[in-house]
Amino acid sequence: MTWLLDFWRSSIGGKVTMAITGVLLFGFVVVHLLGNLKLLGGPDSINGYAKWLSDLGALLWVARIGLLAVFVLHVATAVRLARANKQARPVAYAKQGTVVATFASRSMVLSGLTLLVFVVYHLLHFTFGVTNPEHYARKGLNAGGHDVHAMVTSSFSVPAIAIAYVAFQLVLFLHLSHGIQSFMQTLGLNHARYTPLVKTLSWLFAALVAGGNATLALSVVTGIVRVAP
């Protein structure tokens, strides 16, 4: 146990923790997106998926707890490293200069924290039904648990909510565009030939994930996905 703690406390241990948790979070977002895409497949499709999920029962809870742990670790480590990095440069340069560092790489903490805000809101919105109980409470025509399709579509039909979601996806894009290639480097995967490719793919994947999410919201706004009556 102290072994793990020492590892986590060391500079590289901390980075590797960021990377591994980052990969897992990335994985979740991808899977989550694939699931949510069923929205385009109509009510039965997405609701079936939701039902399948909740039928997993215990297993789902294991996954949720695991996810929560990963998320907390990711954030905690991020905060720890950010603090240490601040202390490592007590006096700032009077004249700042940057040669190659991307905006995304320099604002990881900020984009991350924004994501934190989003996730909290998002959970209150869809998982706990606090922000819009009326959508959450919607029962579907077809019997069964609460109607995810109806909940989501009626939510995104509210312009403010849709806009908020799309805006958050930009932040997610920013975070991942650096994050994906960053975890490759952190995990020691750097090669003269492949690294440039990895950097391009990093942007591509980030765009796909964030874009996919945004599309869902927009598809409702634009009426491609019809709001459940």
Binding site: K15, R89, V99
Partner: peptide
Amino acid sequence: GFGNCTNQYECEA
């Protein structure tokens, strides 16, 4: 008391 690398590649530059 050096900081942690966050893969910004300024050093290389």
